[in-house]
Design a binder for these strands. Structure first.
Lengths: 203, 203
DNA sequence: GTGCTAGAGTACTGGCAGTTCTCCAAGGAG
DNA sequence: CTCCTTGGAGAACTGCCAGTACTCTAGCAC
């Protein structure tokens, strides 16, 4: 009491309006500062919300970030169909590259760092993003087999992740843009030659 | 003065003895708790040193961890030579897998998380570890070309990192042991078929 | 011995995660 | 409209840890 005028004034958001503002603020912070430097205070202030509101909905920083990233890209399985394997592969890699270069990439870094104490969360992250990549790749290859571009035996599970793994590797290690030159190199030097052959079980 | 008996007693280590104790303590902490949960206080206490001694030598946590990890594996370029490409590739992948599964892997996770504010450090990390992998792979392939096992044109830069990238991907994402079954799959399903072909530049 | 260097111990600052409290909008029930 | 419940804003607080600063002293050179 005394002189402390209470300046808690409206308007006050609720429900989805509030949630969306918080998620948007999270994405912005992620984009600007990365995961390691993202603070709950900053998100709250940016969203014009209170920390208590954040913690009522998400039990920790990681959970908030994962939700924010995930709802950013709920793409309903857009599997490219360019009429040829090379075009399909390039389109698929471009999708993966775009995702990595956005806030999802920054989140990925952070999530991996906390992997030891938070194995479950990594499992979720994997199920969400990696699964989609594999599915897209499998479909692209199925079509190529159908068109007679590659032998059916060329499609084995181990190979499905090669493209995405190389992009992740490049992004996480080199920390450089995943430009189209890199993507075409991966397709022409690696994926096309690889899927033109069948695995050998030699000694 | 007064009753406060000063229990700061020797023996007191200096120079290399101290440095090595600190680095060893860092590795142990890394192994037990991972990077995110590694604290300077814990390292200092475990090493029987003071935090001031740590900060006199390393300017931050990341620098300490990097030094500890690096001095752990200063392997003087042991390039496997089993007499055949398949054996060489397997041996090379086993080396990479062993490194990743040790404390270096835990450190890797952490370093990636802090990549945005610490680009230089990532660059160092890359130069140290990735460079060696590439060199080993290049040598293994050079020998295979010499023996006539693969065509010279099969060896292009983009391909050199495929094996290591796949292992890193598996380790970071799946967080499961890199067992020999995985390694042979990578060699038989991917690397051998890949290096049996030359890149195509199609349209 | 004297003096210098450098390590041990420890107390401190400052920032952030996560908690808890109070006060008060928003919105529905009557 | 008023009453009441829900839940948001603000802010104070705990606890942890990075990094700093200062004191005292062991080890070493001379």
């Amino acid at each position: 009491m005394m002189t402390t005028a209470d300046h808690r004034k409206g308007p006050r958001r609720r429900g989805d309006a509030l949630v969306n503002a918080i998620l948007a603020a999270t994405i912005d912070e992620l984009r600007e500062h990365g995961y390691a430097a993202l603070t709950m205070d900053a998100v709250a202030e940016r969203a014009g919300a209170s920390k208590a509101s954040l913690y009522r909905r998400w039990d920790c920083r990681a959970a908030l970030v994962m939700d924010a990233v995930y709802q950013l890209a709920p793409l309903p399985y857009e599997i490219p169909d360019t009429g040829g394997l090379r075009g399909d592969l390039l389109a698929a890699l471009r999708q993966t590259a775009a995702t990595l270069q956005g806030p999802a990439g920054a989140a990925l870094r952070g999530m991996l760092a906390e992997a030891l104490p938070e194995l479950d969360r990594v499992r979720q992250l994997r199920a969400r993003s990696r699964g989609r990549n594999r599915d897209i790749m499998a479909e692209v290859l199925r079509r190529a087999v159908e068109r007679g571009e590659i032998p059916p035996a060329a499609v084995v599970p181990t190979r499905l992740e090669v493209g995405a793994a190389l992009l992740r590797n490049h992004y996480l290690f080199h920390n450089e843009p995943l430009d189209d030159g890199l993507l075409t190199d991966v397709v022409d030097d690696i994926l096309l030659p690889l899927f033109g052959t069948v695995p050998q079980r030699s000694a």
